[in-house]
Computed example of a mutant assay.
Amino acid sequence: MGMYTKKYSGAFILCPVPPGGHPASVTIIADNVPTDFPGDRADSRGITISAELPAEEFRIVACVPPLHRRYDKVSQLIEFVEVQRMLGVDLIVVYNHSVSARVGKVLDSMSHHGVVHVIPWELPFDAYLGGGYTNIHYFGQLAAVNDCLYRYRSRTQYIINVDMDEYIVPSLEGNLWLWVNKQLTLNPAASAFILKSYLLYSYLPDHKDYFPTQEAAKKYQLVTLLKTNRTEETLPFRIRPKYIYDPKRVVSAGIHNIWGHRRNFKSQYIPSDDCTVYHYRNAKVTPNPNGSVTDTYFHSFQYDIVQRIESRWRTIRREMNLTFSDLNH
Rank of each mutant, 00 (worst) to 15 (best):
C275L: 03
Y297E: 10
V83T: 12
C15W: 02
F12I: 08
N96E: 15
Y220M: 12
S252I: 07
H113R: 13
V293I: 14
A24G: 06
F324E: 11
M86S: 10
M164A: 10
V103S: 09
R41V: 08
R151A: 00
G10E: 01
E122I: 14
G140K: 01
A283T: 15
Y220P: 06
I168T: 07
S25Q: 08
R308G: 14
Y278R: 10
A143Q: 06
D165Q: 13
A190Y: 07
V223D: 11
P18D: 10
I194A: 03
V251M: 02
R102H: 12
L149Q: 09
A253I: 02
D72H: 15
E122A: 13
R318Q: 15
K105T: 12
G174F: 14
V64N: 01
Q76K: 13
E166A: 10
Q157Y: 00
G140H: 03
I160W: 02
S272K: 08
I258R: 03
I49A: 00
Q76D: 10
K105A: 15
P205N: 10
P212G: 12
S109L: 04
R59C: 09
L87F: 12
Y220S: 09
A283Q: 15
M164W: 07
I309P: 06
F211E: 13
F301Y: 15
I92D: 00
S292R: 05
Y128H: 12
V250N: 02
V17R: 11
L77T: 14
V250K: 02
N146Q: 03
I305H: 04
V106R: 02
K6T: 03
C275E: 00
L225A: 12
N257F: 15
L91D: 01
L149E: 11
H117P: 00
A144L: 04
T48P: 00
N264H: 15
S98H: 09
N135D: 04
E215T: 11
Y128T: 00
C148T: 03
L172S: 15
Y167C: 03
A55H: 06
S25D: 05
L225R: 01
D274H: 07
A253E: 02
R262L: 09
L199A: 01
